[in-house]
Design a protein around this nucleic acid. Structure first.
Length: 288
DNA sequence: AGCTCTTCCTGAAAGC
DNA sequence: TGCTTTCAGGAAGAGC
């Protein structure tokens, strides 16, 4: 499932291909995950891609309408951002226009170099929308800080003041944007913090360890092009390899790499959470 | 404020 | 064997 490292990998792949390209045509199949399918099909053709960036787990394809397609008296902003969330099973792939079509491919974006950007999404938990450049501030409003940019002090302040469970906060996109279940569990293990721990009760030292763990895990995962645990592939259709480095995620019952204790799985914040009971002590383990 | 439950969707895997 | 049930999960919304 695509989280920050997987989305970053896809973005880098798209950035190598899309900037400078003009989108010639849009074809849509099932479109129930698109905010406004008609607007998408209407507005994107004729736009030229300026850049591709990542905003948390969102992919932002910045485009500009060419002068020709702008009305002569149009005062509107020509910059239009094509924003995509991959959900659970979304894939953006660059391929030749004539390549065979994989099942569950719902969108085709024809490019001016004969290639095609395709969107495939088995479960259709993804999302697509158009955001004019002038509306980006509003779009970003509810989103939290980038996990790779937030400073240590800021991290301690934003999370350490909350009474929610630390796992819930790591997953909350309005606190940190981009961390999902895999990297939350992996970060907590490396920081030796139990997922159900109340953030407010963590020591400064624990918060600093966690801040560092989040950065290290995400950075290492990006280097390995993400984790392919089910069907994740990048823009070139390649799998990542960080799943081979997972310490706890989906390792229930297997020995901890650090102490050999069996990894356990519990539900925290409605998500399966994997941890080592010895390395990540249960909170408020009161005797009596 | 923060928790749990539900919904969306499909395919894999477990259960009978 | 084959059908049915369960589960997985990102995000949003409801209700407590």
């Amino acid at each position: 499932m695509p989280e920050l490292p997987e989305v970053e990998t896809v973005v880098r792949g798209l950035r190598a291909v899309l900037p400078g390209r003009t989108i010639l045509d849009v074809r849509l199949g099932k479109a129930d995950f698109i905010d406004d399918p008609a607007a998408l099909a209407e507005s994107l053709p004729g736009t030229r891609v300026l850049d591709v960036t990542r905003l948390g787990k969102f992919i932002c394809i910045a485009t500009e309408r060419s002068e020709k397609t702008l009305g002569p008296h149009s005062a509107s902003d020509p910059r239009l951002n094509f924003v995509i969330h991959l959900g659970m099973t979304g894939q953006l792939i660059i391929c030749g226009a004539g390549d065979p079509v994989a099942s569950h491919t719902h969108c085709f974006f024809a490019l001016d170099d004969g290639r095609e950007l395709r969107y495939k999404d088995i479960r259709r938990f993804g999302r697509m929308l158009l955001v004019p450049e002038s509306g980006m501030a509003e779009f970003l409003g509810p989103l939290g800080k980038e996990p790779l940019q937030i400073g240590a002090e800021e991290f301690c302040r934003d999370l350490g003041s909350r009474r929610a469970r630390i796992k819930a906060l790591l997953l909350d996109q309005s606190v940190l944007r981009g961390v999902g279940n895999i990297y939350a569990d992996e970060s907590l293990f490396r920081a030796r913090v139990h997922p159900a721990q109340i953030a407010e009760k963590l020591s400064k030292k624990q918060l600093l360890l966690l801040h560092r763990a989040v950065r290290e895990v995400l950075t290492a995962a990006i280097l390995l092009r993400g984790s392919s645990i089910s069907d994740y592939v990048d823009a070139e259709g390649k799998r990542g390899t960080f799943q081979q480095r997972h310490r706890v995620y989906q390792r229930t019952g297997k020995p901890c790499f650090r102490c050999r204790e069996k990894i356990r799985r519990v539900i925290v914040a409605g998500r399966s959470s994997h941890f080592c009971p010895r390395c990540q002590p249960v909170p408020r383990a009161r005797k009596k």
